[in-house]
């Protein structure tokens, strides 16, 4: 345990309080806004034969109520006794550097997945505009090379960018590893297993 962090924190920790407040707010929002709008069955349900039985909203409402109670208890304890100290080796919060990591990480992933999704259809669209084909991507989701374009390019860029970012340099080993994994994935999932589609082909 870090000497600067006392084992029993007396002051309520903002992350601890924040967690409780968010859960409390979410549970109340669920009970009063989300569930009424998004659950068609009621809290109770009268069967066609006059029996009253718990409906589709019964258990969700019970759980959300339990959440509200639990977070209220947690908040009360934290205000009276202070927040519990985090276990050894943990900060018990998301630091600024955690947020920066998540931002970069998700940007890389979203960019990679985005390319995976749009590249194949984009190329086919372009070819059609240029008069090279009259097919749409939907016709070609099981035709090489179109069915591989998005997966290979998007997957390669995403994975190699992540490796390069973590290592701080480009290494042939990483590129070779990613390429071989992509080849294996295509062989296993596209060639050997005939009833599944590689991303993003089930989408079109």
């Amino acid at each position: 345990m870090d000497a600067k962090r006392p084992t029993t924190a007396k002051a309520p920790d903002p992350w601890d309080i924040g967690f409780g407040v968010i859960v409390l707010a979410v549970s109340l929002l669920a009970i009063f806004v989300w569930f009424p709008a998004d659950i068609k069955g009621g809290f109770f349900n009268t069967t066609p034969f006059g029996k009253i039985e718990p409906g589709d909203a019964f258990f969700p409402v019970l759980l959300a109520a339990a959440l509200a109670v639990l977070s209220a208890i947690q908040l009360t304890i934290s205000f009276i006794k202070g927040s519990p100290a985090p276990s050894a080796g943990s900060e018990g919060r998301l630091t600024r550097s955690n947020f920066r990591f998540l931002f970069i990480f998700f940007s890389i992933c979203m960019a990679g997945l985005g390319i995976m999704f749009v590249l194949g259809p984009g190329i086919v669209w372009l070819m059609r505009e240029l008069g090279l084909t009259d097919a749409t991507y939907r016709h070609l989701t099981d035709t090489a090379p179109y069915k591989y374009i998005g997966y290979v390019v998007g997957g390669f860029l995403m994975t190699v960018t992540l490796i390069t970012w973590t290592e701080g340099r480009v290494r042939p080993a990483g590129i070779v590893a990613v390429l071989s994994v992509l080849v294996v994935a295509i062989v296993v999932f596209d060639v050997l297993l005939t009833n599944v589609l590689l991303p993003p082909n089930a989408e079109f």
């Binding site: 994975t159 490796i163 590893a177």
Partner: peptide
């Protein structure tokens, strides 16, 4: 095995796997 190569590769395999298993980008 260097973690910096293995973990992103693991992520790629996982995403491919769930896509095929649970049918679509929703799984991703």
């Amino acid at each position: 095995v260097p973690k910096s190569i293995m973990l992103p590769v693991v992520l790629l395999i996982t995403l491919t796997a769930v896509y095929a298993q649970d049918g679509g980008f929703i799984a991703i």
